[in-house]
Structure formats: C-alpha cells, structure tokens
C-alpha cells in the first residue's frame, strides 16, 4: 500500500471531486433546486440565475440579492444588503485557511480557492481535513469546491428549464432544508464546545437584534454571540483546570 502522503496531487483533487456524492453535497443540491424554483417565481431570467449561482455562490447572499432585485433596490442598496449578510464569510475563510494551507501553498491560490467557500464547503472540509495530509489539503478542497459549484450551476439550469413552477409545499420544504442542514451539520462537524455555545447564542441573538437593528442584525448577533461563546468557553476551561488541580 502506498503512503497517502505519496499519492499525487491529482489523486487528492479527485478525492475532493468524489465529495459530490456526500450527504452535504446532496442536501446543498436540494437547496439549489429550491433556489431555482424561487428564481423562476421571482422572474429572474435563466442566464442571470446561472451566472449568479457560480459567481456569488453563497446561498443566503443569492436569496437576498434576488430579493433586492425584485424589490427594485438600487445598486448601492443591494450591495450593502448582500455584503452585510456575507461578513460571516470572512471568519469562515479565516478559520479554514490555517487548516488547508501548508507553508508552500501560494497566496494567489488561496485567494482563488476562497471563492468556493460557503457553508457547505466549510462544514465538509472542516469535518474531513484531519484525514488529509496537509500538503494535499488545498488540492482536496479545490476538487470539492469547484465540482460542487459547477454541478449546481448545471443543476440550476436544468431545473430552471424543466420545472416552471414548483408545488408550493415542495418549494417550502426545499427552502427549509437549508437552515436545518446548517444547524445539524455544523453542530455534528465540530467537537468544540465553543462552537455549540456560539450556535445557541447566535440563534437566540439573531431575532433579538432583528428587532433592534434589522439591517445589521446578523453582524451584531455574530460578534456578540461569538464573543459570549468564546468567553464562556474560556471560563469553563479555567474552572475545569482549577477543579482538576
């Protein structure tokens, strides 16, 4: 048997490609079927919908972008709405990068690969990266990210051209997949207590800040919830240490 570390880069790329047949990828594809239905309903043309799928990639950002377009929002207003909802991508990428780069990974490659980061790719990679030799992790992520993005662009085009209107109950169920999937997969993918506390804090604070400051609710809930979780985690760790002494 060859040592995993000696396998060529192409092998690891295809190992990532094979991730298309995983549960996270299948759920994301179901969510994209829902998105295609939503785009049809909103009157977005097919070319723009497929373009958006590849170039924006993050699903919540696209839903907000379509929402802004049908509301007749101006370009700056749409930009602000989408960008505020996407701030989460920064800490997501920032926490993923130390996991997938080796000291030889060039920055330009990381900048390029970062485009494929959205919740699914983040969860998928964080969960599996421990079993991949460090020098091949970027390739593994590239294989998965590029495949999932391309397949979903094709899927959106197919659904768009074959399904004119999704049955209401199915469309609702497909939309509901996303939040349930985000919640359970992030919870299951992380053994860290801090992640679980942050999840609960963010879910509780999101609606609260929505009442106070609708435009900035996600940003505030993330910063406050994440900080509370971090402090609580440190406190528990310190207590456990002093109790163990």
């Amino acid at each position: 048997m060859t040592d995993p570390i000696d396998r060529p880069s192409a092998w690891w790329f295809f190992h990532g490609v094979r991730g298309i047949a995983s549960l996270p990828a299948l759920i994301l594809m179901s969510a994209f079927v829902g998105f295609a239905g939503f785009a049809v309903e909103a009157g977005m043309p097919m070319g723009e919908t497929v373009f958006m799928t590849g170039i924006v990639w993050a699903l919540p950002a696209k839903v907000l972008l379509v929402g802004s377009i049908i509301a007749g929002a101006s370009l700056p207003a749409a930009f602000i709405t989408v960008t505020l909802s996407s701030i989460r991508l920064m800490p997501m990428v920032a926490s993923l990068i130390p996991e997938i780069r080796s000291h030889r990974t060039p920055t330009w490659l990381l900048l390029l690969l970062a485009h494929f980061v959205a919740v699914t790719a983040w969860v998928f990679t964080m969960e599996r990266v421990k079993d991949i030799p460090r020098e091949h992790r970027a390739m593994f992520f590239a294989g998965f990210g590029m495949t999932v993005t391309t397949v979903n662009m094709v899927l959106v085009a197919i659904v768009y051209s074959t399904v004119s209107v999704l049955p209401a109950m199915l469309a609702g169920a497909l939309f509901f997949l996303t939040p349930v999937y985000f919640l359970t997969s992030i919870w299951a993918s992380s053994p860290h207590r801090v992640v679980h506390i942050a999840m609960i804090a963010g879910m509780a604070l999101g609606p609260l800040f929505h009442q106070i400051s609708p435009g900035f609710d996600i940003l505030y809930a993330g910063l406050a919830g994440g900080t509370v979780a971090f402090l609580a985690d440190r406190l528990i760790a310190r207590r456990a240490r002093s109790a163990g002494r």
Binding site: I87, M92, F182, A201, M203, G206
Partner: peptide
C-alpha cells in the same frame, strides 16, 4: 477560536432568520 466562534454565531443568526 474566537474567529471560529464568531463565524458560527453569524451562521446561527442566518439560520434563525431563514
């Protein structure tokens, strides 16, 4: 760890909103 907590809480807020 703090960055990871903030990233998680941001997604959690998106979940609650969805």
């Amino acid at each position: 760890i703090w960055v990871r907590a903030v990233a998680t809480a941001l997604v959690a807020a998106v979940i609650a909103k969805l």
